[in-house]
């Protein structure tokens, strides 16, 4: 494992820690899209089914379990925690799951490395991860209000993708057998969407709306 990959994973992990910290300390999930969190949970569940049939390393197994547990934890807070659930922007967070899930499922059935259940589910998770941020992007555009931790959450999620691209470039040159065109294409799309997200984040930052935590 190279340093770009490790830094990318740590950035991904840190973004999740930030979101849990935000929810736990402020007892609020204002500005967070439950739709995006649900889609990420679906991404982790469909991708990490391989926990049952393949083993790569202790590191991978532990990280997969952390990602699964934390995504369910975030959803639990947003849905069931007495105080937190009241701060959820239900009226604004109206993005429909199927708009993303159905096209990703169809694409995974058509464009994949192997037409098997596990492979199609894995490919579906790759495609869905690329676009799962969209409900959050729409919510941010609507509310035009982003606090520090939400902004940092997005920053570290974007950094995770950017670092993974560096990791792929590194692996392209150092591992002749490593060629993951589907993953790379989806990763580029995903990073592009985060660039857009950053643009909206900076715009609201410039407008000086709700940026400092009390």
């Amino acid at each position: 494992m190279n340093l770009f990959r490790l830094a990318g994973d740590m950035s991904h992990l840190f973004s999740i820690v930030l979101i849990l910290l935000k929810i736990y300390t402020s007892k609020s999930c204002a500005g967070l899209s439950m739709k995006t969190q649900e889609l990420y949970t679906l991404v982790f569940v469909t991708r990490y089914l391989d926990l049952f049939y393949s083993y790569v390393s202790l590191y991978n197994t532990v990280m997969k379990l952390i990602f699964l547990a934390s995504s369910f934890g975030i959803l639990w807070y947003m849905r069931y925690h007495k105080q937190v659930k009241q701060t959820y922007d239900r009226e604004q967070d109206t993005f429909r799951h199927y708009i993303l899930v159905v096209p990703c499922a169809v694409l995974a059935l058509i464009v994949n490395n192997e037409l098997s259940v596990t492979e199609v589910l894995w490919t579906f998770s790759i495609y869905l991860e690329a676009v799962a941020i969209l409900p959050q992007l729409v919510l941010l555009q609507r509310t035009k209000n982003v606090d520090n931790l939400t902004g940092q959450y997005i920053f570290f999620l974007g950094a995770y993708r950017a670092l993974y691209i560096l990791n792929w470039i590194y692996r392209y040159w150092t591992e002749p057998k490593y060629r993951q065109y589907l993953v790379w294409a989806a990763g580029l799309v995903q990073t592009g969407l985060y660039a857009d997200f950053f643009y909206y984040y900076l715009k609201s930052w410039q407008a000086g709306e709700k940026l400092r935590l009390p």
Binding site: R5, H12, D50, S54, N113, E119, Y178
Partner: peptide, 10 residues
């Protein structure tokens, strides 16, 4: 198999 390549990422 080609499908197992790259599955070492998260």
């Amino acid at each position: 198999s080609p499908s197992s390549e790259g599955k070492d990422e998260l």
